[in-house]
Amino acid sequence: MPNKRYCWSPGTWPWQARLPSGGLAFAVSCLVALILAVSGDASARPLDEVRASGELRVVVYDDNAPFSWTDASGVVQGVDADLARALAGELGVKANLIARYAGEEVDDDLRSNIWQGPRTGGLVGDVMMHVPMERAFIARNPLVAISNAYYHEKIVLAVQTDAAVPTEPRSMLQPFRAAKLAVQFATVAHYYAMFADDGVYKANINPYLKFETAVAAFRSRENMGLLGRRAQIEAALKGSDGFKLVEPAFDTELRMAWTVGMAVKENSRDTGYAVGNALNALVDRGEVAKIFERHGLTHVPPPVP
C-alpha cells in the first residue's frame, strides 16, 4: 500500500480541496487512484504503453541547474534527471530524458511538453519534472494532472560568515538597510526585497539578470547577502566556506515557498499513479535524499498535508 502522504491525485492537498472536507476528498481520490491503477484505464500514453515501449519519456528543463542541464557530452544531468532515471528503474523501464528550454511561463511548457507538443515539432513527454504545485496554477491547466510532490522550494538568505544577522527570522533582512543584497532580476526574492518593510532596503538591492552573476557578485563580497531559492544557492555555494544560510520569515502574501511536483497528461493519469508509487518507494528507501545529497542539496520534503 503506498504511503498515503504521496497518494497521487490533484485536489488532495487541503488548500486545493474542492469538497467540504479535505480529509474525505483525500480518502476518495486515493481509492479512485487505486481502482484506476488496477483496472488499467486506457488513455493517450497510459502505463501499459509506457511499459510496452520499454521507456518512460521524461521532460526536464535544460539549463536549470542544479535540477537539470545537458553536460558537454550531451548527457542530461541533475537532480531531476537522476530522479527520473530512478523512477523509470522502479517501473522496470528505461528513462528517455528530453531536455527542453523553458517558455515564457510554465503554463506554456506544459502545453509544449505534455498535452500538445512543441510548435516546432517534437515529442511530448509521459512525465514532466519540476512543475510547481499551487492551487491557482493547477486550476488554470486542466489538460494536465499535476502531483507527485518531491521537493519544497523556499527563498532563503545566504550571508558572509562574518555578517551580523539578527536571530529573529522576521528581522534577518535588517542589515540590508546598510549592506548590499544580491538578487536575481524579476524573481520573487527581488520583488520582496524591493518592497519589504516599506522599501527600506530598496537602495541596497542589486538585481542581476542571471543567477550565476548574482552568485559571483556575492562571492566577491560586493554584496553581503544573496537572497534566492534554496536549491540554487546550495548548489552554487557547495564546498565553499565563508558563508552561512539562514531562513528569514517573510511578511508577505507573495509566494516565497512552493512545492515542486510532476505533470502527466490529463488522460494518462495511471502513468502518474505508477510514478507516484515508485516515488514513494524511493523516498522510503532514502534514495531521493541521496540524489539530492549527491548534488550538494538538502532534500526538503514537501509539507505533509
Binding site: N64, A102, E105, V131, A186, V188
Partner: peptide, 13 residues
C-alpha cells in the same frame, strides 16, 4: 501578479 511560474520557479508577472 506575484505568482507566475517560469522554469518551475515563482516569478513576477
Amino acid at each position: 501578479e506575484p505568482i507566475t511560474y517560469k522554469k518551475g520557479a515563482a516569478y513576477l508577472g
